[in-house]
Amino acid sequence: MKLRLNLSVNGEPAEALVDPDKTLLEVLREDLQLTGTKHGCELGECGACAVLLDDQPVLSCLVVSHECEGRSVVTVEGLTVDGRLHPLQECFADLGASQCGYCTPGILIAAKALLDRDPNPSRDLIREALSGNLCRCTGYQQILDAVQASIVRLGEGGEQKK
């Protein structure tokens, strides 16, 4: 028996008929074909699968499909608004914060949640907020730089138009 799900994904209603044993990660990638959300363990150990669920960053690999009904999900695909990249995305691209890019969607989600909550976090606080996301490529320095640069860009009114 399939499970019928109605959710809001990146601001748009989405309906899917899914295998009930699936996690949100599987529903997003396989049923909604939103493959921007990645996976590196499916056990909560890497952070690659982070999405915003009702505005909270969570690990989609640990969310069962049954508990997604009626909720709102934002994935990396939803960070771009009206064709404009989020300042975080701009800064990540410009400053080398994304090398292979595989951890990037999850880190962008965690960083966005942080900046939504606290528009001016310290470098230590950024570190803490992103400490649930592993990156094997960058050594994190350029990611920290990019988040800090995006704070400046956001502060200069570089917000995305909604």
Partner: peptide, 9 residues
């Protein structure tokens, strides 16, 4: 405990 993302859950 764990990580910020896990603590959210």
């Amino acid at each position: 405990i764990a990580t910020p993302l896990l603590r959210n859950m």
